[in-house]
Amino acid sequence: MAVDSKVIAQAAARLTGAMERGRAVAPVRDLLGAQDIGAAYAVQQELTRRRLRRGAVVAGRKIGLTSPAVQRQLGVDQPDFGVLFADMDVSAEPEVPSARLLQAKAEAEIAFVLGEDLADGDLDPAQVRAAVDHAVAALEIVDSRIADWDITLADTVADNASSGLYVLAERRLTLDEFEPRETTMRMYADDVLVSEGSGAACLGDPLNALAWLARTAREFGEPLRAGQVVLSGALGPMVPAPPGTRIRAEISSLGEVTAAFSEKRDA
């Protein structure tokens, strides 16, 4: 079924308004339908085009819904993805700018940085693995423009997979130096343990998530390219990250990654 361009424009306008006014809005599923993945990605693509016209630069992708429990919650059987823009990377900032966020939550992940394109060929596990230049520990700061995180699959996909910002650690390892599925993760908020998990929690292996994304991105006509960052999916439950919080994650082999959230949002 063809996607109604007027409906796509309405949903995109609602989400754009949330970003411009800094105020969460009602879900867009009333426009798209709660499970219409095609329409939701059409909204995401429209929002991406708008950002690119304003000078944004694509830095990579993020993968979401890699946890079976979250998939069951939303009634889906596959992950989703969103676009990472260069200005989402706040690794070099002394603090995560809470003013840029509405309802921040943090997830600990493995980030893969590609050394080769994933555009041609079978995109089988061997090819995907060989395309990874290195991996780093990462914190994805997810956010939702939908009020109270009241989301279905359509809402989160349209809202760029509930993307926000991200932080990358400095330590780099190749896939000859560690095995992503064997990692363990502990995440702390103000030194209190709030989340635990492992590489196996991410589709059985974070490289499985990368392979899924490589195939899906190519199907959408925007294959993964050398130099891009891929946030491969949460290794454990996400946790709230309000202003003033300090999040620290320990991912075995890859080490620590931290993010201190600024105390107050701008007025």
Rank of each mutant, 00 (worst) to 15 (best):
S5E: 15
V7C: 04
I8V: 15
I8F: 10
A18N: 08
M19S: 15
E20A: 15
G33I: 07
I37Q: 10
A40W: 12
V43E: 06
T48P: 00
T48K: 15
R51N: 03
R53Y: 03
V58M: 10
R61C: 01
T66Y: 08
S67E: 05
A69L: 14
R72Y: 05
Q73C: 01
Q73K: 14
G75Q: 07
F81W: 14
L84I: 01
D87Y: 13
D89H: 12
S98K: 00
K105V: 11
A108H: 06
I110Y: 04
F112G: 02
L114V: 03
L114Y: 05
G115C: 07
L118V: 03
D124M: 01
A130I: 02
V132Y: 09
V132G: 06
A135L: 03
V136A: 03
E140Q: 11
I141Y: 03
R145V: 03
I146G: 01
I146K: 01
D150H: 14
T152P: 00
L153A: 14
D155W: 05
T156G: 02
T156A: 05
D159W: 12
L165A: 09
R171N: 11
L173Q: 10
L173E: 07
F178I: 00
M187G: 04
A189M: 09
V192G: 04
S198H: 12
G199C: 09
A201F: 08
L203W: 09
W212M: 01
T216L: 02
R218A: 09
R218F: 10
E222S: 13
P223M: 11
R225W: 00
R225L: 12
S232M: 02
P237C: 13
A241K: 07
P242G: 10
P243N: 11
G244H: 09
T245C: 10
T245W: 01
I247C: 04
S253M: 10
L254K: 10
S262Q: 09
D266T: 13
D266M: 12
